[in-house]
Amino acid sequence: MFEQLDFATFYSVDTTQRDRFCQDLVSSLRQNGFVRLINHGISSDDIDRAFETVCPPMSRKWKYRNANRDFKSRDFFELPLEEKLKSPHPPTANPHRGYTAFGIENVSAVSNYGNGAKLPVLNDMKESYDIGYEHDNLYANIWPPSGVHDAFEPTFTSFFASAYNAEIAILQALSLGLRLPPQTLSQLHVEKANELRLTHYPAVSRKEFSHSTRIAAHTDFGTITLLFQDCVGGLQMEFPRGSGKFVDVESGGPHECILNVGDCLEKWTGLPSARHRVHLPERLQRDDDQMDESMVDERYSIAYFAKPDRAASLRPLLGDLKHSDEEGYMTAGEFQRMRISQTY
């Protein structure tokens, strides 16, 4: 149903073909708020290694290329809770770093941001780990201590670097597609104030979705999000935009990237920030009572949130945009703090 684009076209030596791709990318984002990307710049090996580090090897959902890899430690989310809590997220919203146990974060609290109709508040069913740039001059990372998971820090430091390179290329493509100078967006993302989030949704019975959800409907706070997921399903986008109706975005496997528009990019360009959630896949939404006790598989995802430099103004970049939000022309840092403060 939703288009998949090949980002390799951006590197075509034929500039006409490249420019057409950039325009198609912007057109898809303008229509849906997100797009499915392949050949996005993060290697399959990097993605496999990242998933191996957080979830069980030889997963039921797919087989890794390097199935016989010798793991240095147990996969992080499989560790006992007392081990995971040795690198805890602080009790406050900032710094947004470290491990968050089930029931701590409340995305439902920000579900209605920018939404005219109030959405129901549901409990999120997940645990997560947040990571930032290793040289961030404001917030230090919180890593598992030595002996808990020694492969964790080098794996995600490397993945973060690969994701940043992909981010810059995508921002340049977006700038060209919007008919702006190619460095317009990338020059607003120099300090790497980005975040990497690893999420585990446990296996739950179908009936739990009557009063809970894996993550409530929301928009992302930053510029763009690069989302990688397993094949369990459950990612849903509001479609059409503003309708309150959510449709499944079928997973193309862990190497496909779902590129979401975030709130900051919407303020700059008018491209719509994608309202999405993780819920019970449509194929499992049956009416027969005997299915209520059936289990929905656990799910894993890796999301890289590309965020502007904290001092960057959110003043529109396109002359025909009018800005009437209550925040006025906030800096990106002010906007991020406002949004994230509501989740903890």
Rank of each mutant, 00 (worst) to 15 (best):
R69Y: 09
D70K: 12
D70H: 07
F71E: 10
S73R: 06
S73K: 11
S73D: 14
R74G: 08
F76L: 13
F76I: 13
E78F: 00
E78D: 14
E78C: 11
L79N: 01
P80Y: 05
L81A: 10
L81Q: 12
E82F: 02
E83C: 01
S87T: 13
P88R: 07
H89Q: 13
P90F: 07
P90W: 02
P90N: 04
P91V: 05
T92N: 07
T92V: 10
A93V: 01
A93P: 13
N94S: 14
P95L: 09
G98P: 05
G98A: 04
Y99L: 01
Y99R: 01
T100H: 04
T100Q: 10
A101M: 12
G103D: 05
I104Q: 10
I104M: 14
E105G: 02
N106F: 11
S108F: 14
S108M: 05
A109F: 14
A109S: 12
A109V: 10
V110W: 07
V110A: 14
S111G: 11
S111D: 02
N112V: 10
G114Y: 08
N115F: 15
N115P: 00
N115T: 15
G116I: 12
A117P: 02
A117L: 15
K118Q: 13
V121Y: 15
V121W: 11
L122I: 03
N123C: 02
N123L: 06
N123R: 12
D124F: 04
M125F: 08
K126W: 10
K126P: 01
K126I: 09
K126D: 07
E127L: 05
I131C: 05
G132W: 05
Y133F: 15
Y133P: 04
Y133S: 10
Y133C: 14
H135S: 14
H135I: 04
H135W: 09
H135P: 02
D136E: 00
N137Y: 03
L138R: 11
Y139P: 01
Y139M: 10
A140H: 11
A140M: 06
A140K: 10
P144H: 05
S146C: 09
G147F: 00
G147H: 04
H149G: 07
H149N: 13
D150K: 08
D150R: 06
D150N: 12
D150E: 11
F152G: 05
F152E: 11
F152W: 13
P154G: 06
P154E: 04
F156G: 05
T157S: 14
T157L: 03
T157F: 02
S158R: 15
F159A: 05
F159R: 06
F160C: 08
A161P: 03
S162D: 11
S162P: 06
S162M: 07
Y164P: 06
Y164K: 04
A166G: 02
A166K: 12
I168K: 10
I168D: 00
A169M: 07
L171S: 03
L171H: 11
L171W: 05
Q172I: 04
Q172S: 11
A173T: 11
L174A: 09
S175C: 04
L176C: 08
L176D: 05
L178P: 03
L178T: 06
R179Q: 10
R179W: 01
P181W: 00
P182C: 00
L185V: 00
L188T: 07
L188C: 12
L188F: 03
H189C: 11
H189R: 02
V190I: 14
E191Q: 12
K192P: 00
N194M: 08
N194I: 01
E195G: 04
L196G: 00
R197T: 09
L198M: 06
